[in-house]
Design a protein around this nucleic acid. Sequence first.
DNA 1: GAGACCATGTAATCGGTTACATGATTCA
DNA 2: TGAATCATGTAACCGATTACATGGTCTC
Lengths: 190, 190
Amino acid sequence: MELSPLAGALLGLIGQEPRSGYALRKVFATTPMGVFSDSPGSIYPALKRLAGNGLIAARVENARTLRPRKVYELTAGGRNALGRWLAQPVTRDLVTDGFDLAMLRFVFMPDVLGYAATVDFVAALEAELTRHIADLEHFHRAHAREMPLAPRLGLQSGIEGFRAHARWAARARRTLARPAARERRREKQR
Amino acid sequence: MELSPLAGALLGLIGQEPRSGYALRKVFATTPMGVFSDSPGSIYPALKRLAGNGLIAARVENARTLRPRKVYELTAGGRNALGRWLAQPVTRDLVTDGFDLAMLRFVFMPDVLGYAATVDFVAALEAELTRHIADLEHFHRAHAREMPLAPRLGLQSGIEGFRAHARWAARARRTLARPAARERRREKQR
DNA sequence: GAGACCATGTAATCGGTTACATGATTCA
DNA sequence: TGAATCATGTAACCGATTACATGGTCTC
């Protein structure tokens, strides 16, 4: 019952508004989202699986044509699964194996779990990143002397990437925690 | 004949010195390399495939015991494949879907293709990153107004991550191009 | 003698990618 | 009328992950 990143992305997007497979492909093709493939062979089987698990349901338009258009929306179970996927604890893996997955969850989080949970999530990312950076720096201090030039530069690249993520998290946390920003946005949306 | 990242990592490590499956697992388990799984089910089948393709060959120690130790080394074909894998042109994908793969190639590059090629590679990374950042900033300018807070922050996280990579590339290129650094290292290794 | 570490493998599963396949509609 | 866009699917393949399986060796 663990969602794959693609499944999470699809559920999150369908949760925003009902969408067809084609509409989802366009999102992946035209926005800098998660870097998922927009190929049909990727998305239609994934939607089929989600529908098979009862997490989404299709409203069929233009039935009895050759290719009826299927607009998917979340079921109660789907909304639940999305919530649990987003609420998973922040692990070391989440900040190390590509920050994309963390950002994917972050983007969908406010609408599903609310602002408070999102602030906590970003704070947890920041904490885990800080720990991971400390570990990498420890490794660097211990082994930099005996490492050839390229691996040492590679390690530094990693450390600097994680530092950039940590700086972002600190700033995002402050932005999100500022009530004024939320209020202004809320006003705008009316 | 396209190498997977795992295959490239294995070939690169075996190219440095002959290694057994277990030794390779230990590298993945104890160094911050590429974040590959160190599970046996991951590495042994991969080694088998590489051996099947004639890219590596095993020197068997303790034959006729139950589990003979196999130390793999590169064949001529393997060294060739590694060289071609490293020499692939820098594409947009290489800098966008996880910088890890680029860093993996970077780490093995000097020993196989030499310093000049490595400098070129880093310069190409820098150029491609600069282009990609420009594209993301363009997208940001065009859509930031209508984007909700979380996606906008997510996009900023991406941009800042790529900026960090670009700064690293610029610095690494200068470090690598400085002949003095190379010479000093070369002296040390004697 | 128990536990950690060395050491290699197989089987089942699962999901993503590529390539293939089809056809309607809209606009220049 | 031809190209681009809308729109949905299947089939074959491949490789990574997880769990399972085995047993030797070294050290306390």
